[in-house]
Design a protein around this nucleic acid. Sequence first.
RNA 1: GCGCCUGUAGCUCAACGGAUAGAGUACUCGUCUUCGGAACGAGUGAUGUGGGUUCAAUUCCUGCCGGGCGCACCA
Length: 579
Amino acid sequence: MQNKIKQLITDALKNLNIEVSEIVVEHPADLNRGDYSTNVAMAVAKSIKANPKELAEKIITEMLRLNLDNNIEKMEVAGFGFINLHLSRKFFSRSVEEILNEGDGVGGNDALKGKKIMVEYTDPNPFKPFHIGHLMTNAIGESVARILEHSGVSVFRANYQGDIGLHVAKAIYGLLNNSKFQEKSGSVFSQSENIGKAYSEGAGLYETDEKAKKEIDEINKKLYDKSDEKINEIYDWGFKVTMEAFEDLYKILGTKFEFYFLESQMAPIGEEIVRTNIGKAAGPDGGRIFEESDGAVVFKAEKHDSKLHTRVFITSQGLPTYETKELGLTEEKFKTVPDMDLSIVVTANEQMEYMKVVAKSISLIHPEYESKMKHITHGMMRLASGKMSSRKGNVITGESLIRDTIALVTEKIKDHDWDEEKKEKVAQHVGVAAVKYSILKQSTGGDIAFDFEKSISFEGDSGPYLQYSYARANSVIEKAKKEDILPDPHAFPPEIFEVEKLLYKFPEIILRAASEYEPHYIATYLIELARSYNSFYGNTIIVDKKDITSSYKVALTFAFSFVMKKGLYLLGIEVPERM
RNA sequence: GCGCCUGUAGCUCAACGGAUAGAGUACUCGUCUUCGGAACGAGUGAUGUGGGUUCAAUUCCUGCCGGGCGCACCA
């Protein structure tokens, strides 16, 4: 529709002998102003020395003459010279019909059809707790993946695990130091929780206790060369348990990864790349890629871009750093998926600067990858009471947050007349929705202020509110079935409901979310949509045998439920039929 | 110090350079005869600050003030 309007404006301007380089057609913020608006009159008024309002009138007259389409009801001049277009009743009923025909494919597009994109996200480390940052990364990554898929992309979900390094040694020290953490009788969840505690203890002692620090460094070496039977045994158990616990969580969260990359395996690949590129000249000024400095192998990125800085890739002790592993990972990714169009990595923004340096080094070695790497960063969870730190003991793990929220929902629905299995499922879906929505409702970049009571809401601007609206529409549909009222998009009443003015915008919202990698456009759209449906519901009797337009209202309800279900799916949220 | 990000109602967040800056929450009042009150309706309340560009600036540029992150052998 937008393109049709643009064409109409272009033709009108042509007939008036007015040249415009770019025509902007957008939706007015206020639905009452119209469905589309354009600012062309104001944009060109000055250059052709015309009064914007008069010019707008002229353009409208010309557009009316050219308009043979019955989609546009009327056009008018408003404000300083905006041209507002109102779409016709027929247009809206047709768009409702279209949604009903599309069914599950609603809102989809093939803008990126055939593209292969890998999305790496979540990245929790074995032996460490699954914290809130992982939850944020997971929610954003999963949603971006789904949005891309709905735009025709073949998405490959990847997860990168730090299976080796000092953090593992710290956890193992904690486990050795305190054998109660090695209790193997409980669930995978409680075992991994204990390992998380062991890690915290080890990490704390590493900072404060000289003796412990020495021992941990010792364990770290043994881990690398696998020389200690006992440590190997604990490692194997701990790795398995924490990874299984992550999988349990992924099931609840609705994520399934195709690829798992392990740091320990990326290290030698990256090291090989670094070593073969030491001393090689690169870049316009002939700066080197990697060079030796103080016994370490470094990349002086500032030589290539003044905003970047030097980073160590191989330490003076000969150990590869995270940068090197990332280098190996990137190359491995492009090998794993041949002809990949884009490799996306989602992480917290504290890694932004260092990723730029790594990306620079990669693009010097593989110039063809430069435009195929994309780093999406999100903010940190801020706690009302100050920053989270494991030493202060105020860390809320992502795992416990999810489970606490689900428990809250369970309490809420405990009196429902359902079997336990259904209660558990609904509680999970609603709990996950509450958490995910609170993360996805705002644009990715910024920090999220976290307050359990306030952030995890079930009312108003919340995930459960959206699910509730869906469940409610579902009840309406069931009642219509009982009364034998079939949906009919042609039996429309003269008035146009607000829901309809939002429903047809769904595809363009998805397109925008996909092109900017921003799930929040969908979240804010769904809230607006749910609000309009609830308002419609409150002011209208939808299922009413005496009303000949009832079948249209039922059709509208179907359309709403299709869009809501798909929209929530794109956010990684399931919809319960009842709640 | 340098670089990147950021500053919008009391609080948590929106606004592709456009019109009267939108929601939620909190607070006040109202809706409970239809199909689910996790709801609906109404009210109170905001662009950190000084310049600049533009027909038009929360948005772009710039000075200042405040917050976050990063800046060599951690990840």
